[in-house]
């Protein structure tokens, strides 16, 4: 990570304040690698984050401009910002599962609806971990957390027939994918594709939380246990097994097939200005 860190990340934020054994670094590194692969400079990208583990640990790591929205609102801030930013600037968001699929879902959907350019990496640690470990909208069935002491018995949003990525697809996203953080080069390749889409891209990446999830669900804080557990329950799309929880790969690549939010806003405003600009303000 040295070369990438020196080039793109603030030294003040390295090492990160994440718990030891946390898999968030894998997600973060994959994204920075994809950015580097595409040749972006630090001022080409404005980096937004959410609250929770994913947001807090990645906020202000980027050497360029960075902002953090409060619970679930970063998509609305980003959409407003998208209007004011120069078209060539890219918005990248690193957010958590609770932020994206719970408290911010309404705002996320409307960013999707308008195909606003933002590459959203949902770093999923399978529940609300920064508050001590409560179940969330992606917590696997049966898993014990501090707020599901008898096992998670509510439906979640990653199961076939109830997959949040399908909702986002129908809502108008132009790039959707799912991975686990140990997917390495495959994850980087997906993120490169996501970044190339001038529209709404979302990459859902499951990563291990040793401190709360590992302890509660698996009874172990040993990183190797949870890394192995997540990896064993992830299979590429089409190769699912009976115990597969996460079907990985690209769910939708309709990159650059539909007008981007700020682009159609600009074009429409320009057209209206041409037609009505001389009519004055009254």
């Amino acid at each position: 990570m040295d070369y990438l860190a020196t080039k793109y990340l603030r030294s003040r934020k390295i090492p990160s304040s994440a718990c030891s054994g946390c898999g968030l670094g894998q997600c973060h590194k994959a994204l920075v690698k994809a950015i580097d692969d595409l040749g972006y400079e630090r001022n080409d990208i404005i980096w937004g984050t959410s609250i929770g583990c994913a947001g807090r640990q990645t906020f202000a790591t980027w050497k360029g401009d960075s902002f953090a929205g409060t619970h679930g609102r970063v998509y609305a801030i980003a959409r407003g910002l998208r209007l004011a930013l120069a078209p060539e600037k890219r918005l990248v968001l690193t957010v958590g599962d609770g932020d994206a699929f719970g408290i911010g879902f309404n705002h996320l959907l409307h960013a999707v609806r308008t195909n606003a350019q933002m590459t959203v990496m949902v770093c999923d640690n399978l529940g609300y971990q920064s508050t001590g470990g409560q179940y969330g909208w992606t917590t696997p069935p049966g898993v014990v957390t501090d707020s599901s002491p008898y096992g998670m018995f509510e439906p979640n949003w990653v199961q076939p027939g109830r997959d949040v990525l399908m909702i986002l697809k129908e809502a108008g996203a132009t790039f959707l994918a799912r991975h686990v953080s140990m997917d390495g080069g495959v994850l980087v390749e997906t993120l490169r594709k996501a970044l190339r889409n001038n529209g709404f891209s979302l990459v859902h990446v499951v990563y291990p939380c040793t401190t709360n999830f590992g302890k509660n669900a698996l009874g172990s804080r040993k990183p190797v246990d949870i890394f192995r557990w997540i990896k064993s329950h992830a299979k590429p799309l089409g190769l699912e097994k009976e115990d597969t929880i996460w079907r990985t790969g690209i769910y939708l690549d309709a990159s650059n097939s539909r007008p981007e939010f700020s682009q159609f806003m600009r074009e429409k405003v320009e057209e209206i200005r041409r037609r009505h600009g001389n009519e004055g303000a009254h």
């Binding site: 902002f67 929205g69 609102r73 609305a76 801030i77 980003a78 959409r79 407003g80 910002l81 998208r82 209007l83 004011a84 930013l85 309404n106 705002h107 959907l109 409307h110 806003m265 405003v269 320009e270 209206i272 200005r273 009505h276 600009g277 009519e279 004055g280 303000a281």
Partner: peptide
């Protein structure tokens, strides 16, 4: 008419956050 944007948000929380985003830009 003056090159500005009107955006109708999904709710008021979003409306003000969108306005914040535009101001931040």
């Amino acid at each position: 008419r003056v090159g500005g944007y009107y955006v109708q948000a999904e709710d008021e929380t979003a409306a003000m956050h969108l306005a914040i985003g535009a101001s931040l830009g």
